[in-house]
């Protein structure tokens, strides 16, 4: 529910309100992670490391539903719709372009909400491993989640053997998005 500002406000103020959007969204990913079966059996250190390296990618998947690739618009949860052009003023043009492209590919797979949630769990535990101490435990959790995702998808679409591989191919896309864009700058006013 991002209150990106009407035209009257300066781009700095727009930037601040856009930056504020991320705080609740990140907290929701942390709560989501804690609900993933097995995630809290990992060491606290490894939970924090996975979240630090995977949260941006999970957010990218979550934000997909806000993007309309055909109309090139973004509709925030408060109902405000913005064209790609108007959002370029925020200086996130390249990230937005990449997001439109990614959401088009992911959207075309037509996942159900529970499949999308399980995919986000896979995204999180597939995040960068540098800094992980008990790699074996994380690998085991990842394997279990991938198995669950595969059986959920194949049970619903027994005659479609291409969907699951296509879905896993989105993981490298997300890693690229993360490497290219997680260093975008945010700005917070300190009164």
């Amino acid at each position: 529910s991002c209150p990106v500002a009407p035209a009257s406000r300066s781009s700095q103020e727009v930037w601040e309100s856009f930056s504020q959007c991320f705080t609740p969204a990140v907290k929701e990913v942390v709560e989501f992670a804690k609900s993933i079966p097995g995630f809290q059996t990992l060491s606290q250190h490894d939970q924090v490391m996975l979240l630090k390296s995977g949260t941006f990618q999970v957010l990218m998947v979550r934000f997909c539903s806000l993007f309309d690739p055909k109309e090139r618009t973004v509709t925030f949860l408060n109902g405000q719709t913005y064209s790609l052009a108007s959002l370029r003023a925020l200086g996130m043009g390249s990230l937005l372009d990449a997001m439109f492209e990614f959401s088009e590919k992911l959207g075309s797979l037509g996942l159900e909400p529970d499949e999308m949630a399980l995919f986000m769990a896979v995204v999180l535990v597939s995040a960068d491993r540098s800094g992980i101490v008990e790699v074996g435990a994380v690998e085991q959790l990842q394997e279990n989640l991938i198995k669950a995702l595969r059986s959920l998808i194949t049970s619903r679409r027994p005659d479609d053997s291409t969907l699951f591989p296509k879905l896993l191919l989105r993981l490298p896309d997300l890693r690229t998005l993360n490497n290219h864009h997680s260093d975008k700058l945010l700005a917070f006013r300190i009164d």
Partner: peptide, 25 residues
């Protein structure tokens, strides 16, 4: 004058996660 703290998306995410886990310890 208003002062600003500028940080990357990644640092902002790390900051929130560290805070959350510290609070729930």
């Amino acid at each position: 004058p208003k002062t600003h703290r500028v940080m990357t998306l990644a640092d902002h995410i790390s900051h929130i996660i560290t805070q959350d886990f510290a609070r729930n310890q």
